[in-house]
Design a protein around this nucleic acid. Structure first.
Lengths: 139, 139
DNA sequence: TAAATTTGTTATGCAAGGCTAACATTTCGG
DNA sequence: CCGAAATGTTAGCCTTGCATAACAAATTTA
């Protein structure tokens, strides 16, 4: 059995696979290729690696499906993404696209521990509406 | 003239060079090697790249010095690092080492724009002491 | 100061992640 | 059902960043 650790790059591929399957019931390699701005060849390579690590089920010319392990991992990544994006967008007031793009980079780096704290902090800020409103007004 | 863009890895080398020169007036390759946990050979390679991009002055067996461009760039990176670490450590209440390590990863990703906003946010939180104290008490 | 140690460089190789081009397979439109 | 178009795969190559091993230079020390 091969190593279970995922690089940032493979996490991106897995996240994409998960989101597409969730939204459309299936994914095609070419969609991933377009979403991540990589060649079709690179997608094939990445999917083979994910399959080898048991995050997805995949074989030559076969449909792509996601394993339980893959779902679990994808959810973790997406949760990180959402917490980060929420903080940038709704606390700091960053424009959506920039918030999303940056969240995408950081989601592969941040620890579970910091993520949890940030998540609590987001919740806390939401409760204390005044605080954030005043910040946004530069007061 | 070669490309001026620095990879995360080269940013780490530059940051290390800058800090050491600031603290001790000079750097030796072997110190960088120890601080960044890489081989001496990798340091030589990285220093050559930084010199080629005009961030440092460097030649075979020569002293390492940093250019104005290098200083400017290093300050940017270190500022990012500090703002991030402050947020993790003093706002979220993360332990120093973890805060530093994560800041180190994110400093290469975050945009100037988000950095500025986060910096303002740090300042704002410092002013509103009560807010952060209550968060830390889980209220 | 000469030998030993430390530090720096070079040569070479490896893994990851990307690319293009050519080929294989599948899907779609007549 | 067949040919064209779309999609997927493979082969070969490139770049970055790292390593080790052997060699070169500098520094230390006996």
């Amino acid at each position: 059995m091969s190593d279970k650790v995922l690089s940032s790059s493979l996490e991106d591929y897995l996240e994409c696979v998960y989101n597409r399957i969730n939204q459309n019931g299936a994914v095609k390699a070419i969609e991933i290729s377009k979403e991540l701005n990589v060649s079709r060849a690179s997608v094939t390579e990445a999917l083979n690696k994910l399959a080898q690590k048991n995050y997805i089920n995949y074989g030559r010319y076969e449909m792509i499906s996601i394993t339980d392990l893959g779902i679990e991992k994808a959810k973790e990544i997406i949760n990180k993404h959402n917490v980060l994006q929420f903080f940038f967008e709704n606390i700091l007031g960053i424009e959506k696209n920039e918030a999303a793009k940056t969240a995408c980079g950081i989601e592969h780096i941040i620890t579970e521990n910091i993520l949890n704290k940030l998540s609590e902090f987001n919740d806390y800020c939401v409760k204390k509406t005044d605080f954030i409103n005043l910040f946004k007004q530069g007061k």
